[in-house]
Computed example of a mutant assay.
Amino acid sequence: MQATQKTRVLTGITTTGTPHLGNYVGAIKPAIEASQDPNVQSFYFLADYHALIKCQDPERVQASRLEIAATWLALGLDTDNAIFYRQSDLIEVQELAWFLSCVCAKGLMNRAHAYKAAVAENEEAGNQDPDRGITMGLFGYPVLMAADILMFNAHKVPVGRDQIQHIEMARDMAGRFNHLFKGEYFTLPEAVVDQKVEVLKGLDGRKMSKSYNNTIPLFTPEKKLLKLVRKIKTNSLEPGEPKDPDGCTLFQIYSAFASDQDVAAMRQQYADGIGWGDAKNQLFDYLNTHLEAPRERYNALMEDPGYIESVLQKGAERAREQAAASMEKLRAAVGLGRFV
């Protein structure tokens, strides 16, 4: 009896910043849970080639790669089941990106949201050249993303709403390649947007994002964590006055980590008029307790980059084994196969 093929799920993590609470709730936690599902073949990669589009600070990119790898491992990523690797360790991805570039219409890239936004900024600024400051890395980003996905014929790609267009473009390139070279070389990937994934608010009440400089780093030391929690913006209601938990950043972050029972108890405290100082202290205590053990693992991993390197090399070997076999078929398909 033939074994059922596992569903292949692929997720990339751009290596330009330090992981924060919003990253954990929105992406890391659900992905790590998925990595432990024996019915799913998960691919998680550090998107360090993508990082070069936004960041030309080599020290920042290098530090971010280490921090992100340590974070995922500290939080329990199952690297025996999931394949965890660096994008830059798979040269085959770059080769596939070229193949896809040769079948991808330029007009398709002209419609990419990031490119259009950059052009619009130039036009608003009154620049005569609408492409001023726009690199080929930014323009061709969707092709590289398509190569990441199609290299492993991922069935599902968890993304935010702003990335759905890129999955549609990957489908377009895959279909075009299949049509031109008369074969089912690529699976058409499906974007998966989890409606339940919460977007955490940051210190100032806006979306938690490094772009706004309002984040709470996931493994910041205990004293710094307390200081950051106390900086979270609240209104001017006094202790004893009932407070609305819905729309409150403190309550939202607390709810993302606490049990249903504890959330219900905190909601009652808001109705009873909890003081903001007390609410912040309770949030700090909950976060600190929840993150204490993984923070210790993270710090230990950061002191042992050789171990992280060995895990990533092992993942790269597993990924490369599949990628090399795929590229051999694809080279033959386009006329670049061996003579004998």
Rank of each mutant, 00 (worst) to 15 (best):
E241L: 06
F251D: 05
D244L: 03
Y254I: 00
T215D: 15
A271R: 10
L225D: 04
E241Y: 03
A256S: 08
A264M: 06
S209K: 15
G240P: 02
T234N: 09
S255N: 02
G247W: 09
I253N: 00
Y212R: 15
K243T: 01
S259M: 11
T215L: 15
S255Y: 00
V199S: 13
K207G: 12
E222S: 11
R206L: 15
T220N: 09
G202Q: 13
V199H: 11
T215M: 15
I253V: 00
K231H: 01
K227W: 04
L225C: 03
L237V: 01
S211Y: 14
T234I: 02
T234M: 08
R267E: 14
T249W: 03
F219I: 04
E241I: 01
D246Q: 02
E241A: 08
S236A: 06
G202Y: 13
K233T: 00
I253A: 00
N214F: 15
G205F: 12
N213D: 13
S255A: 07
S236P: 00
L200T: 05
R206S: 15
K223F: 11
M266D: 04
D244A: 02
Y270H: 11
D262N: 08
L237R: 13
V229A: 11
K207Y: 13
P217L: 08
P242A: 07
R267L: 12
C248P: 06
D204N: 14
E241H: 06
L226H: 05
L218W: 06
L237D: 10
V263I: 12
L203I: 12
R206C: 14
L218H: 04
L226M: 09
D260S: 09
E238R: 13
K210F: 14
C248K: 10
R267A: 14
I232Q: 07
P245W: 08
D204G: 11
R267V: 09
D204R: 12
L226E: 09
R230V: 00
S236H: 04
F257A: 09
I216R: 12
G247A: 07
A258G: 05
M208W: 10
E238C: 10
R206Y: 15
I216E: 11
N235G: 02
A256C: 04
G202M: 13
L203W: 11
L228W: 03
S211L: 14
M266Y: 03
I253Q: 00
P239I: 07
M208E: 12
K233H: 01
L237G: 04
P242V: 01
E222Y: 04
K201E: 10
Q269V: 01
Q269A: 10
T249S: 13
Q252K: 02
Y254R: 00
P242Q: 10
G240R: 13
K224S: 07
L226G: 04
S211E: 14
I216H: 11
L200H: 09
D244C: 05
E198F: 07
T220P: 04
G240W: 13
V199C: 08
P245Y: 08
L226D: 06
K207I: 06
I216S: 10
G247H: 08
N235P: 00
K207L: 12
D244N: 09
V229Q: 10
A264I: 03
T249E: 02
D246C: 00
A264T: 05
A265S: 05
G202L: 15
K210H: 14
E222V: 04
N235H: 07
